[in-house]
Every structure is written in structure tokens, then in C-alpha cells.
Computed example of a mutant assay.
Amino acid sequence: MGKTKKLIELDDKAIKILEQQAKLQKRSLKNYIEFTLEDTAARFSEPSDAYKAMMDDMIKRHDEGTLETFPVSEVLKQYGRKL
């Protein structure tokens, strides 16, 4: 996959915040911005084949009445958390 350069302008406050986050992750500002943008773009992309297969299986089990679900309150209780 190729790469494209783009010039972007951000206000000073945004740059300072991004620099702090980059430092926390031990990344350069440039690397942090690139990583964050690529990660965000990946979230907008189409789901993987494995995810689609898993969801198809869950839909099938739901339609067949064999999908077992639990209320969120029960899951939280299992992990010692509250709503």
C-alpha cells in the first residue's frame, strides 16, 4: 500500500495535547498522529472476514434460539463491578 503526504494545520492547544499523549506512548508526535489517524481509519473500514463469520454464527444461533445471553448487570456482578 502506498503512502501520501498531506499538510495539516492544527491549533497550538491541540498540538500540546497530542505531544503529551505521544510522550506517554513513547512515540514522536509525527508517529503518534499517523498511528492515531490510521487506527481511526481502520475503524471505519469493513469488518474482517473472521468477524463477519463470528457475527453470522451469532445471528444463526439467535434465530435458532440457541444463543445464550446474560444481562449486563450479571456480567458486571461476576467481575465485582456495579452499574
Results as ranks from 00 to 15, higher is better:
5 K>S: 11
47 P>N: 09
40 T>C: 12
68 E>N: 08
2 G>P: 01
73 S>C: 07
1 M>H: 06
34 E>V: 01
61 R>Q: 15
15 I>T: 08
6 K>C: 09
23 K>Y: 05
58 M>Q: 11
42 A>R: 15
63 D>V: 13
60 K>T: 15
7 L>E: 10
53 A>Y: 04
65 G>E: 03
72 V>Y: 09
32 Y>A: 01
19 E>Y: 02
50 A>H: 12
46 E>M: 09
37 L>H: 15
66 T>F: 06
2 G>I: 03
48 S>G: 09
41 A>R: 13
45 S>P: 09
5 K>C: 05
5 K>G: 12
36 T>I: 04
21 Q>T: 07
51 Y>G: 04
76 L>P: 00
62 H>C: 15
23 K>T: 05
23 K>C: 03
9 E>C: 06
34 E>Q: 02
78 Q>L: 08
65 G>L: 02
52 K>R: 13
33 I>W: 00
69 T>A: 11
41 A>N: 12
20 Q>L: 08
34 E>F: 01
44 F>D: 15
65 G>S: 03
66 T>G: 06
52 K>V: 07
18 L>R: 00
12 D>Q: 11
45 S>G: 09
24 L>V: 13
61 R>W: 14
62 H>F: 15
22 A>T: 02
77 K>T: 03
20 Q>E: 11
2 G>L: 04
21 Q>D: 10
66 T>L: 07
14 A>P: 00
43 R>M: 12
77 K>G: 03
30 K>I: 01
12 D>N: 10
9 E>Q: 07
21 Q>H: 08
60 K>Y: 14
72 V>C: 09
56 D>A: 08
66 T>Y: 11
29 L>Y: 01
22 A>N: 01
83 L>N: 04
30 K>H: 03
32 Y>H: 04
6 K>Y: 13
44 F>I: 07
7 L>T: 14
26 K>E: 02
55 M>C: 12
43 R>Y: 12
8 I>R: 02
51 Y>C: 06
13 K>Q: 07
41 A>I: 14
21 Q>S: 12
35 F>S: 08
21 Q>W: 05
33 I>N: 00
12 D>W: 14
46 E>W: 07
79 Y>M: 14
83 L>R: 04
80 G>N: 02
